[in-house]
Structure formats: C-alpha cells, structure tokens
Design a protein around this nucleic acid. Structure first.
Lengths: 108, 108
DNA sequence: TTGACGGACCTCGTTTCGCGAGGCATATTG
DNA sequence: CAATATGCCTCGCGAAACGAGGTCCGTCAA
C-alpha cells in the first residue's frame, strides 16, 4: 500500500474503529492487519501520535485497565464530539473518492 | 476538501488527466476546478513540483509550444512508462478505497 | 534461572507532501 | 494606463507517516 495515499486517512480509520467500541493501541494495529489480510500494518509511529491528538481534541478519551495478569492497557473510546466529527469525516471521504473517481474513471 | 486526504493523490490525478491527452499546467488547474464544480482547486505549489517529479522519472515528458499570440505554454504528455505506472496506481487506488471502506463501512 | 520472545506503551529525527505567498513575464481589456 | 488574466516557477512552513529506537513486564523454554 502506497504510504502517500494513506496520509490523512488515519483519523478516519481510528474513529471508525472506535465507533465499534473501545480498543487499545496494540489491538488496533492487530485488527487493522487482520482485516486487511496483512496488506496494511498501521505503524506505531503513526498510531500513537494520532491517538494522542484525537484525545487532545476530545474526540476520544482514554482509560487504563489492568488485566488479570497485572499488566496494563490503555483503552480509547469515542466521545460524542468524536462521533460528530466522524460523520463529517465520512462525508469528506465520500466526496474525496468521488472527486478522484471523476478523473481516474469508474472502477474496472 | 481536507488537504491531508489529498496527499498522494496528485500523481494519480495528473497521470489520469494526461492519459486523455497532452495538457499544460494552467489548463490542468482549470480543468480540475471545472470538473469538480469548483470544490477542488489544485494549487500551483502542488502541481508544478509534482509535474517536474513525474518528468524526472520519465513518466511524462514536456515540450514548449508557442501560441499564435507569441506566448508560450509547456505541454506535458504521458509516456509509455507513465501509462504502465498509471495502471499500477489505479490498482493501488482501488485497494486503498476498499481498505478504508472496510472500516468506514459502505457508502450511505 | 536466565534469556528470548511477545505484548504493550511511547518518542524522535527524517522525509514527503500540499499550502500559501511570493516572484516574474506577457497579453488583453476596461 | 492600469488592472486582470494567463502562464511559468520557487521557497519556507506545517502536518503527517516512517523507521528506528527505547522501556517495562509476563511467559515459556532451555
């Protein structure tokens, strides 16, 4: 997958995932990798900064949870403001796809 | 249109346009603006560097043409290598859209 | 018991890209 | 004559992803 195309899609992806329920970082990476059949591995250097930014703007919130074995995980969950933002992002995404499609032509 | 989403889509757009025939910079900008109903104005600071890069890699080539009024235009045209590259890019684009769609969900 | 592996979090420097703002030059039009 | 449109370009900036690094801890095999 071309790295350049990915730019800007990360927040949309994260928000969409968290819309299904709270998740923690490592889990997000694994989920993305599995759902794409391994063709896209979200990098930590992209994930964590994006997550933190989303939290700073209060689109998501986080909480630590201790597992039975004593280890900790940081879960992120979608906030109401984030849900609204996700809607807007989705609309933007569709417009973007339409736009490019208008030049590239419809899918073969 | 979110500037971040656009990142990486420019070469695909340019190659697709040039696939229809040779064009010059200003014309490309106008064409994009018109075809998107004004919602996307390709900026010069994005266009020219992208064009030059595409030329440096020999995916496109350029030639100057003098108009009747004496003014010059620099036309860019798709090269065979560029055509092949465009095919690959299109495929990549479709995969990318599928990938995001898999998380965002199908279009409403 | 020790060491390797995997889970889990993170940061930092580099690269790449689009943007905004500027520059330059020559028609055309009011 | 001046403003606008045409037409090319570059440069500094900000934002984002990448790659590589770091840390800590549990588990499991040697």
């Amino acid at each position: 997958m071309d790295r350049e195309l990915l730019k800007g899609s990360t927040p949309l992806l994260l928000l969409s995932l968290l819309c299904e329920g709270p998740m923690y970082g490592y889990q997000i990476i694994e989920t993305v990798r599995q759902r794409t059949g391994g063709s896209y591995t979200l990098k930590e250097g992209a994930l964590y900064p994006a997550l933190h930014k989303l939290e700073a703007t209060e689109f998501i919130s986080s909480y630590w949870e201790t597992q039975e074995n004593g280890r900790e995980r940081r879960y992120y969950s979608l906030q109401p403001a984030g849900e609204a933002f996700l809607m807007a992002k989705k609309k933007e995404w569709n417009q973007f796809v339409d736009m490019v499609q208008a030049f590239v032509g419809p899918r073969a």
